[in-house]
Nucleic acid binder design. Sequence first.
DNA 1: AGAAATTTGTCCGTATGTATC
DNA 2: AGATACATACGGACAAATTTC
Lengths: 138, 138
Amino acid sequence: MPTLHYGQPRYRLIADELRERIQSGAIPPGALLPTESKLVIEFRASRGTIRQAISVLRQAGLISTEHGRGSSVKAPARNLEPEGVESHTRECLVAADTELAALFAVQVGAALIRTETVNRRHGVVDSVVRTYRPSDAG
Amino acid sequence: MPTLHYGQPRYRLIADELRERIQSGAIPPGALLPTESKLVIEFRASRGTIRQAISVLRQAGLISTEHGRGSSVKAPARNLEPEGVESHTRECLVAADTELAALFAVQVGAALIRTETVNRRHGVVDSVVRTYRPSDAG
DNA sequence: AGAAATTTGTCCGTATGTATC
DNA sequence: AGATACATACGGACAAATTTC
């Protein structure tokens, strides 16, 4: 049987179908995908093609595969922002104090660019980061 | 002929060999890798195995493959840290000025922990980063 | 604990489609 | 149009890890 693949290759179509099942919740996080053998039967594709499709999903971070066990759906990537963490940044020109003037080798009172980031956690200020740079060049 | 693969699988060994040639400069950036057919002959491996080895290098970002053309060596990722970059950090207690006092909701003059990092580039101060935190808790 | 069954990993050989030169 | 080279797909075989009995 000649292998025709106009448009999308088969392994991609199969990957899309499986992705759909994962994202729709038909195969929930933690659950195992059908075994390669089952997928071979269902999609009437060779094992190589099935494995290629699975590889696509693994590379996309949707599943993880264990030797001798199977491929399980990973929990959707947590937004690693727990909650209530905020950052606000603003920039302004400030005058160099004696310490900064010494470091940058400029006169006291010379202009520096200051970038200030205020980090809040649950609304309260957690830390303030101030970065000073010369105002003239980089 | 039975396929024995003690230790590392063949495609990995082949990938390592090719990686060596790339990193040693034997195959310089921009140059084309030997064709799949040539590699098949040289390593006496099947095309699938050769392609798997090439896939490893491509995924590692060492080469890029173009359909109908071949796989070429990519320019090594620039080490984004030239040289002469230095950082020195020290920590001390400072008194809150009006601005910081307002942010942290403490009295002016209250103690804050200040971590100061001085970044130098070729000896000259490039930037100064000051991070303020409350002195009491985290 | 150990043997068998299941499942994924690796490898081979081949055929054919498709893009580039 | 022809040659070359990569992409996709099939089927079979054995190895290795895991699970099951």
